Measured scan of single mutants.
Amino acid sequence: HMTFVALYDYVASGETDLSFKKGERLQIVNNTEGDWALAHSLTTGRTGYIPSNYVAPSD
């Protein structure tokens, strides 16, 4: 899985969403939902949907 870094803070709007903080590292599990991606946080160990425009690929 590619690793991504959060560009902004995001507060989950539902139970299936994943909250994260700017700078948090995430792995995209499934990116077939258009503007949303299923992601796993390497920081918190949690998995949920995130807005895909809130993250960018990290080196």
Rank of each mutant, 00 (worst) to 15 (best):
His1Val: 13
His1Met: 13
His1Gln: 12
His1Ser: 12
His1Ala: 12
Thr3Met: 11
Phe4Asn: 01
Phe4Arg: 04
Phe4Thr: 06
Phe4Asp: 00
Val5Lys: 04
Val5Tyr: 09
Ala6Arg: 00
Leu7Thr: 06
Leu7Gln: 07
Leu7Phe: 04
Leu7Asp: 04
Tyr8Glu: 08
Tyr8Gly: 04
Tyr8Asp: 06
Tyr8Ser: 07
Tyr8Arg: 09
Asp9Ala: 05
Asp9His: 03
Tyr10Phe: 08
Tyr10Glu: 00
Tyr10Ser: 01
Tyr10Gly: 01
Val11Asn: 10
Val11Trp: 10
Val11Pro: 04
Ala12Phe: 03
Ala12Ser: 08
Ala12Asp: 02
Ser13Thr: 14
Ser13His: 11
Ser13Met: 13
Ser13Phe: 10
Gly14Trp: 07
Gly14Thr: 11
Gly14Ser: 12
Gly14Ile: 08
Glu15Arg: 09
Glu15Phe: 09
Thr16Glu: 11
Asp17Thr: 08
Asp17Ser: 09
Leu18Cys: 05
Leu18Arg: 02
Leu18His: 02
Leu18Trp: 03
Leu18Ser: 03
Ser19Ile: 06
Ser19Trp: 04
Ser19Tyr: 04
Phe20Glu: 00
Lys22Arg: 10
Lys22Tyr: 04
Lys22Asp: 01
Gly23Phe: 04
Gly23Glu: 02
Gly23His: 03
Glu24Pro: 00
Glu24Asn: 01
Glu24Gly: 02
Arg25Phe: 14
Arg25Asp: 03
Leu26Asp: 00
Leu26Cys: 02
Leu26Gly: 00
Leu26Gln: 00
Gln27Phe: 13
Gln27Gly: 03
Gln27Ser: 08
Ile28Thr: 02
Ile28Cys: 06
Ile28Gln: 01
Ile28Tyr: 05
Ile28Trp: 04
Ile28Gly: 01
Val29Asp: 06
Asn30Phe: 14
Asn30Gln: 12
Asn31Tyr: 15
Asn31Ile: 14
Asn31Lys: 12
Asn31Leu: 14
Thr32Asp: 10
Thr32Met: 13
Glu33Gly: 14
Glu33Ser: 13
Gly34Lys: 08
Gly34Arg: 07
Asp35Met: 12
Asp35Gln: 12
Asp35Arg: 12
Asp35Ile: 11
Asp35Cys: 13
Asp35Asn: 11
Trp36Tyr: 08
Trp36Glu: 02
Trp36His: 05
Trp36Lys: 07
Trp36Asn: 03
Trp36Asp: 01
Ala37Trp: 15
Ala37Pro: 09
Ala37Lys: 13
Leu38Glu: 03
Leu38Gly: 00
Leu38Val: 05
Ala39Glu: 00
Ala39Pro: 00
Ala39Gly: 04
Ala39Ile: 05
Ala39Asp: 00
His40Gln: 11
His40Met: 14
Ser41Trp: 02
Ser41Glu: 01
Leu42Asp: 03
Thr44Val: 01
Thr44Lys: 02
Gly45Thr: 02
Gly45His: 08
Arg46Phe: 08
Arg46Asp: 05
Arg46Pro: 00
Thr47Tyr: 10
Thr47Ser: 10
Thr47Pro: 00
Thr47Trp: 14
Gly48Arg: 01
Gly48His: 02
Gly48Trp: 02
Gly48Ser: 04
Tyr49Ser: 03
Tyr49Pro: 02
Tyr49Lys: 07
Pro51Thr: 01
Pro51Asp: 04
Pro51Lys: 05
Ser52Pro: 09
Ser52Lys: 15
Ser52Asn: 09
Ser52Ala: 12
Tyr54Phe: 12
Val55Ser: 04
Val55Glu: 03
Val55Tyr: 09
Val55Met: 07
Val55Phe: 10
Ala56Trp: 10
Ala56His: 08
Ala56Tyr: 10
Pro57Cys: 11
Asp59Asn: 11
Asp59Phe: 13
Asp59Cys: 14
Asp59Tyr: 13
